[in-house]
Amino acid sequence: MLNLPANPKQHLIIFTRYPEPGKTKTRLIPALGNLGAANLQREMTEYTIFQVQELQKAIAISVEVRFAGGDLQLMQDWLGLDLVYQSQGEGDLGSRMAQSLFDAFQSGAEKVIIIGTDCPGVNSQILATAFEKLHTFDLVLGPAIDGGYYLIGLRQAIPELFVNIEWGTAQVFQKTVDIAQKLYLSHVNLSPLADVDRPEDLPIWEQALVGEVKG
Rank of each mutant, 00 (worst) to 15 (best):
N3G: 00
N3R: 11
A6H: 06
N7K: 11
P8Y: 07
Q10H: 13
L12A: 04
F15V: 00
R17P: 00
P19A: 10
P19M: 10
P21T: 07
K23L: 11
T24N: 07
T24E: 03
P30A: 12
G33W: 04
L35S: 08
G36T: 05
A37D: 04
A37G: 10
N39G: 05
L40C: 10
L40N: 09
R42I: 00
E43K: 15
Y47L: 14
T48G: 08
I49N: 06
I49D: 04
V52G: 03
L55Y: 11
A58R: 14
S62C: 13
V65T: 06
L74N: 05
D77Q: 15
L79I: 15
L81S: 14
V84G: 02
S87T: 10
Q88H: 07
G89C: 11
G91R: 06
D92R: 06
D92T: 06
M97R: 11
S100A: 15
L101S: 05
L101F: 15
A104Y: 01
Q106I: 09
S107A: 15
E110K: 15
V112A: 15
I113E: 01
I114Q: 03
T117N: 14
D118T: 12
D118R: 15
C119S: 14
P120M: 13
G121K: 08
N123H: 15
S124C: 12
S124Q: 14
S124F: 15
S124G: 03
L127S: 01
T129W: 07
F131H: 09
L134W: 09
G142L: 13
I145N: 02
G148M: 11
L151P: 07
L151Y: 06
I152P: 04
L154W: 00
L154D: 00
R155G: 02
A157K: 00
I158Q: 11
L161D: 00
N164V: 01
N164F: 05
N164Q: 08
E166H: 07
E166L: 08
W167A: 01
W167Y: 14
T169L: 02
T169K: 05
V172L: 03
V172H: 03
F173V: 00
Q174F: 09
V177P: 03
D178Q: 12
D178I: 01
K182T: 09
K182A: 09
Y184S: 14
H187T: 02
V188G: 07
A194I: 01
V196H: 02
V196P: 00
R198P: 00
P199F: 07
E200N: 08
L202P: 01
P203N: 08
I204V: 15
W205A: 11
Q207M: 11
Q207C: 09
Q207E: 07
A208W: 05
G211E: 08
G211A: 10
V213M: 10
K214S: 09
G215T: 08
G215V: 03
